[in-house]
Amino acid sequence: MGVGETDMLPKQESPESNIVKCIFDKILEVELGKPVDFELPDSFRRWKPTDYIAIKRNIYLTKRRIEDDGIFCSCSPSLGSSSVCSGDCHCEMLFSTCSSSCRCGDFCRNKPFQRRALKKLKVVKTEKCGLGLVADEDIRQGDFVVEYIGEVIDDKSCEERLWKMKHRGDTNFYLCEVNHDMVIDATFKGNRSRFINHCCEPNTEMQKWRNDGETRVGIFAIRNIRKGEELTYDYQFVQFGADQDCHCGASGCKKKLDEYLFEGSAK
């Protein structure tokens, strides 16, 4: 579009502004006494508020801490192999992704947060636990499933948010304590991992990994998971407010969530 051409175009209004204008026009006609048939437009009736904003990486509301752990591996591709860095990789054993200091190169398998294909997951309505997340494909034991992401806040902000939630009567919490003064809160911004429900006998677990000096939280399968099976992990919940019943249905269910030691703590 050339300079000055915008002046030649008619002003465009968004569909939302047209809907609102239409509603207000009809309301004014009613107020003035002119009878009209008033009905909300279909698009307005179907609209629902967004519970959270979907993001792809953590958003830091506190200082980002980058620490060099000095870990690197000496793995190298073997003859005829198309991959490198398996279970005997020093980095993987220490929950650290391989970095540029490693010799493994482009065939490295120990980069779960950078290179592994995302698993197919689906949000569903559960019978007793609200929304949940199910596997939309078979997942093998040990596979990286999804990263737990949200707003990274410090302990002070976490406490302030918890009290606000308590006063509002909120019962759903999306807080994951990573380290001292580092909490991932997926209440307002996050991804589908926030829908994973608690289970006393879960099929996934949270793991803390070091990725290029940054601490990140991944959810990994601890057994084979079939397509259509709900994903769960142990919240390790600490009580904040009224007791909450556990509805996981596991044979070893502890019945109450307040019997756990920590809230959403990653290993």
Results as ranks from 00 to 15, higher is better:
C91S: 10
E92Y: 05
E92Q: 11
M93G: 12
S96P: 13
T97K: 00
T97Y: 03
T97I: 01
C98G: 07
S101R: 15
S101Y: 11
K111L: 04
K111A: 01
K111F: 03
P112S: 01
R116T: 13
L121N: 11
L121V: 15
K122V: 13
V123Y: 00
V124Y: 03
K125P: 04
E127G: 09
K128W: 07
K128S: 10
C129F: 05
G130H: 09
G130P: 09
G132Q: 05
L133S: 15
L133D: 14
V134R: 11
E137N: 06
R140F: 15
D143Y: 11
V146K: 06
V146C: 03
Y148W: 01
I149E: 04
I149K: 07
G150S: 08
G150Y: 03
E151D: 12
V152I: 04
E159R: 11
W163G: 07
D170S: 08
N172E: 15
Y174R: 06
C176H: 02
C176G: 05
N179Y: 08
V183S: 07
I184H: 12
D185W: 02
A186R: 11
T187I: 06
T187G: 15
F188T: 14
F188C: 06
K189Q: 11
G190Y: 11
G190W: 05
R192I: 10
F195Q: 08
I196V: 07
N197L: 09
E201C: 06
P202N: 06
P202Y: 04
N203P: 15
E205Y: 02
R210D: 12
R210I: 02
D212H: 09
E214N: 05
T215M: 08
R216S: 08
R216G: 10
V217A: 14
G218A: 02
G218H: 11
I222P: 15
R226F: 15
K227Y: 04
K227E: 10
K227Q: 08
K227H: 14
K227F: 07
L231C: 12
